[in-house]
Nucleic acid binder design. Structure first.
Length: 431
RNA sequence: GCCACCAUAGCUCAGUCUGGUGGAGCAAUCGGCUGUUAACCGAUCGGUCGCAAGUUCAAAUCUUGCUGGUGGCGCCA
């Protein structure tokens, strides 16, 4: 008899041959002379049925002892049956518990706090597994798009001696005899690399020490950042909308099963196609004021307003040309009216809000130095960055996409924390 | 940083307002059971009511402090 290997639950189809599966007990329902056990593996779940009169007494006894999350191996014949989960089930001829262990602590009733305390066990839950698969697709699709469009993947440092987004939200740590910081964005380093590779990207963790408690924030997230030489503000938005469209189409094609399990209605996602709608900041304020808000032209949009705008527009859209005072020193200003700047945020529909911030960078030496001073930063802290404008400075643009923000929206989840296996939040750095 | 809220059995919660012998469901254990869909039925087991102090004849319950956690906001991806 040829050696049989284990197959995945999702690959099981009715056949005359006996198959072998391995995985964990997802559910088990016991009756007098038959037992239903749902086996879970990386691919999904499948129902197995064991009857007392078709199993050895050893196998039957083991089946009676089986409990949630035991590691098991099974053998049996796959048959069609419309009473089973996916209309196929395995009639067991053999059953073994490979590791019984203790009673699994996560059961039917779970509070958010309990799940976070047991995150290391919750990662194996069926829902979480589906999210990890979508997120893996997001990262893979992003890399594919960059590769297809001649971007080079680069590896900038995560440990850094200077701030990018401002001092108050930096995590600091001891670096030999100095203080170093965890990266908030590798943008400044990517700007250096365009002078070598022209079109670069990186996927790195970013850290923000913000003491916020919202469903949109985590203190450690994965940042998909791109930077391109010779690309202006408009061209940068084109890159972003094509990248996002590619990722959306990729997950729709490859993750239909996961979306179904997550009960995500994908009809909105199916309509998404570049180019995206673009509204100026001024227009956005006007639209909001027409819908019952009372905002001034230079007022910052708050979460409530952003969410309202996202629901009004109902598709992905850019808010472009922000007031300069709202954006950092590296953003290029409009030459004719420096009150406005070349910065745009890409918003997701359905009230999910910001996915990307991007824009054209200031490439003129004097203007950059002036802006750093105006914002109250020390010029010497940015010496190397300023240097980039001294030797063949070129117009360039870039953006930062939050992998978790995107996954959150694509999966239609309650909170962004659910897109990370071990989310780092204000009160959680363990496990 | 600001504002709320929560802490009672392994888990989810009721009981707190109005002080007077700590409850239910799930899990676990035992038994029953018709192909179950987080099965169902019966029984058993299970508690320093987050910690500390105060008020009171009497505190899970009222007061104060502390600890841990959750939600929302500023900010942002």
């Amino acid at each position: 008899m040829p050696k049989q290997t284990f197959i995945y639950a999702s690959k099981v189809t009715p056949s005359e041959d006996t198959i072998k599966l391995r995985g964990w007990v997802y559910r088990i329902r016991k009756m007098k002379d038959k037992i239903f056990v749902i086996l879970r593996d990386a691919s999904g779940i499948i129902q197995c049925i064991g009857s007392e009169n078709q199993l050895s007494s050893e196998a039957w006894n083991m089946l009676n002892e089986a409990a949630i999350e035991n590691y098991i191996t099974v053998e049996g014949k796959p048959v069609e049956d419309n009473r089973a989960v996916n209309n196929v089930e395995v009639k067991l001829t053999n059953f073994r518990i490979m590791h019984k262990g203790e009673i699994f602590p996560i059961a039917k009733d779970q509070s958010k706090e309990f799940l976070l305390d047991n995150t290391h066990l919750f990662v194996r839950s069926y829902k979480a597994t589906n999210v990890w698969k979508v997120k893996a697709s997001v990262l893979r699709a992003a890399r594919e798009w960059f590769f297809e469009n001649d971007f080079y993947e680069t590896t900038p440092p995560i440990l850094t001696g200077s701030a990018c987004e401002g001092g108050s939200t930096l995590f600091s740590l001891k670096y030999f005899d100095h203080t170093a910081y965890l990266s908030q964005s590798i943008q400044l380093y990517l700007e250096a690399l365009i002078y070598s590779l022209e079109k670069v990207y990186a996927i790195t963790p970013s850290f923000r020490a913000e003491k916020m408690r919202t469903k949109r924030h985590v203190n450690e997230f994965w940042h998909i950042e791109g930077e391109e030489a010779f690309v202006d503000f408009e061209g940068n938005m084109k890159i972003q909308e094509e990248l996002v469209t590619y990722i959306v189409q990729y997950v729709l094609k490859h993750n239909a099963k996961e979306f179904k399990e997550l009960k995500r209605d994908t009809s909105v996602l199916e309509t998404i196609k570049a180019p995206f709608k673009k509204v100026s900041y001024k227009e956005a304020i006007n639209t909001l004021n027409e819908n019952g808000f009372d905002l001034k032209w230079d007022q910052d949009m708050k979460t409530e307003e952003e969410r309202a705008l996202s629901n009004i527009i109902g598709e992905p859209f850019f808010v472009r040309d922000y007031p300069s005072s709202h954006k950092p020193f590296y953003v290029k200003l409009h030459e004719d009216d420096p009150k406005w700047c070349f910065s745009a945020d890409l918003m997701a529909p359905e009230g999910f809000g910001e996915l990307i911030t991007g824009g054209q960078r200031e490439d003129v030496l004097d203007t950059l130095v002036r802006r750093i001073k105006e914002e109250g930063w020390k010029v010497e802290d940015y010496d190397w960055y300023i240097d980039l404008r001294k030797y063949g400075s070129v117009p360039h643009s870039g953006f930062g996409l939050g992998a978790e923000r995107l996954t959150w929206w694509l999966c239609g989840l309650e909170t962004i924390q659910e897109t990370l296996p071990f989310p780092r939040t204000r009160n959680r750095v363990y496990p």
